[in-house]
């Protein structure tokens, strides 16, 4: 089992009011699954994604990633897990605007101490995988939206993470480009990667093999496509 979520809950405290965002959630995800997480705003979708991405910790229950309980780690330990285990792809790409594509892709490797030459080589390979080898020295503002998202995917892949966590990856792209990006995810899945897709678009979720729907902090349904 790659991901085991047991009785996971997250409650935000806003002043004196407790706002439950996730309630006693249980989800298991195997290696090489392709899962979509869907739900309207306020369903707890983002909260779940933040916890899955180790950007946040739950207030109750356990999150076991790769046989390691990450529910109660410190900020720095979480940073290390994110670096090693998780590749993020965001709706807004989140590339460093002043850095060229190659530098953006090699960024995660800086934080695990990979030597420069090795880093460059790996970043080049990752860019090649997403078909952007010839754009390595372009800055984000010199790239199209689809190209930027591919750079972000290359960055997500570079550390060979256990999970690729994509948050509305096509939300800022036209449908044709969106399809291209979804094709890349399908290819990555075929190549053995585990992909978790957060979206509110049915047709995007349809690319995945399993759909988990959230509503009001609960898992409403969990179906294979």
């Amino acid at each position: 089992m790659l991901i085991e979520i047991k009785d996971l809950s997250k409650t935000y405290i806003l002043g004196e009011i407790e706002v439950p965002a996730l309630k006693e959630t249980n989800i298991n995800i195997e290696k090489n699954e392709y899962v979509s997480i869907m739900g309207p705003s306020g369903s707890g979708k983002s909260t779940l994604m933040n916890i899955l991405g180790c950007l946040d910790v739950p207030t109750g229950g356990d999150y076991i990633l790769n046989n390691q309980n990450v529910s109660s780690l410190t900020d720095d330990q979480l940073a290390e897990i994110r670096n090693k285990e998780i590749g993020f792809v965001f709706q807004t790409f989140n590339l460093l605007p002043r850095a060229d594509a190659l530098h953006n892709v090699e960024l995660p490797l800086i934080y695990n101490g990979t030597p420069r030459i090795k880093r460059r080589e790996m970043a080049r390979e990752a860019l090649e995988k997403v078909g952007l080898a010839d754009r390595a020295d372009h800055k984000p503002n010199e790239l199209s939206g689809g190209q930027r998202q591919r750079v972000a995917i290359a960055r997500a892949l570079i550390n060979k993470p256990s999970i690729i966590l994509a948050d509305e990856p096509t939300g800022n792209l036209d449908s044709k480009t969106g399809e291209e990006i979804m094709k890349i995810f399908s290819d990555l899945h075929a190549a053995g990667h585990t992909i978790i897709l957060v979206t509110h678009e049915e047709y995007i979720a349809n690319h995945s093999k399993r759909t988990i729907r959230l509503l009001d902090g609960y898992v409403q349904s969990d179906t294979m496509n």
Partner: peptide, 9 residues
């Protein structure tokens, strides 16, 4: 961004 991809404090 840096923190998300693994930068520590």
């Amino acid at each position: 961004i840096r923190k998300a991809i693994g930068a520590k404090r």
